[in-house]
């Protein structure tokens, strides 16, 4: 029997209400509906989540590792982009 591989899906699980979905891994499934079931069975067995997103891996466009220098290095010496130059007034609890 010829063995055709099911397409790959990326799985995102929301741990609890209020948090965002986080990537937890990937799996194979014939379609989105099956991917949801498989994700439930593989990634939420120990109470990890309250919500699941599945997306075909082929639908994801990733940055090229060879572009890393131009994409990410320029941010390294821009310390003024970090909000560390403000003095926090006394009495402000949440900023």
């Amino acid at each position: 029997m010829s063995k055709q591989q099911w397409p790959l899906f990326e799985i995102f699980v929301r741990a609890k209400s209020g948090l965002s979905h986080r990537h937890v891994g990937s799996l194979h499934a014939a379609d989105e509906v099956m991917a949801l079931d498989h994700a439930r069975d593989l990634y939420t067995r120990r109470g990890e989540g309250v919500s699941i997103w599945v997306v075909r891996s082929s639908a994801i466009t990733a940055s090229d590792p060879f572009d890393a220098d131009s994409l990410f290095d320029p941010a390294e010496d821009k310390i003024y982009r970090h909000p560390t130059f403000y003095e926090v007034p006394d009495g402000v609890e949440n900023l």
């Binding site: 799996l27 194979h28 499934a29 079931d37 498989h38 069975d41 593989l42 067995r45």
Partner: peptide
């Protein structure tokens, strides 16, 4: 037949 289905059966 598939890793994912095997896990489901185990569950």
């Amino acid at each position: 037949p598939e890793l994912e289905e095997e896990m489901a059966m185990g569950n």
